[in-house]
Design a protein around this nucleic acid. Structure first.
Lengths: 133, 133
DNA sequence: GTTACTACTATCCTTTTGTATACTAGTAAC
DNA sequence: GTTACTAGTATACAAAAGGATAGTAGTAAC
């Protein structure tokens, strides 16, 4: 059976380039939360508590430290509105965060596809189990 | 000064979809090593030690456990060649690993761009420091 | 007999990441 | 006076991820 396997293989130099590049990328945007915070802010600027509600499951302590990282790396800006009561702090995605658009698009598409696949697999397992019972 | 900020904002439903999808994606391909192992294997099938040499910095213990995860999730297959001496084990990327192509392409492009930016910033810092000295 | 190669696993340790709970100041509503 | 809201920080702890080192079996070269 002549099976089609990898239609496109990476050359050695391409492989090394990709390895380094993805390593660099994950150094700043890796981890469970960073991209999700950026996505949440791509809906528009948000306050701290609002952000915590949008990014489900994150604690205040972690959100705070992630925001500091993201600010340091130029992905978000922190704006304090001192004229209001109580003082309101707004976080906003920068243009550099926007440069991740293609990454987020690809990741969203893949994640959506993957979720469907997992769901289908779970259903198949269900069928098998009920047949055996 | 009329500044152009976010040219495109996500709608609330798109934001939630993206948030979930990226969460699902990172659940299986998140972490420091998984994507890098997949990249290394996109050059072609590789043996354990060969893989460890390609993915710089990974320990045998971590590589072994990552490979098990990747196999379980359908990204790689493990083929044992028992006829040779010593027994050789080859790892190969599957078609499902190939489905990550767009993600890897986007991440590689972004990572390369980011690396250049960081380098430029470091050079600027250098200049400033030497001026002050 | 010693060394080296294969593909790992075992053990121990450190670092990173995350959770829970309580607390801060200042004001406004009840 | 009590509660609630703002945006966090402090503390203590637990869990997950990762790293370093050593060791396994079997063979083959020196």
């Amino acid at each position: 059976m002549p099976e089609i396997k990898n239609s496109k293989r990476l050359s050695r130099p391409d492989c090394v380039t990709s390895l380094n590049a993805v390593g660099d990328a994950f150094y700043v945007i890796g981890g469970k939360w960073k991209l999700r915070i950026i996505i949440a802010l791509s809906e528009g600027p948000k306050r701290f508590n609002e952000l915590q509600r949008t990014v489900e499951g994150i604690s205040a302590r972690v959100l705070s430290s992630e925001l500091k990282d993201l600010e340091m790396n130029g992905f978000v800006t922190r704006n304090v509105h001192a004229e209001t009561f109580p003082v309101v702090v707004e976080y906003e995605a920068t243009g550099y965060a926007d440069s991740l658009r293609d990454v987020l698009k690809a990741l969203t598409a893949w994640g959506t596809m993957h979720r469907k696949r997992i769901k289908r697999q779970a259903e198949m397992e269900q069928q098998k189990t009920s047949k055996h019972a």
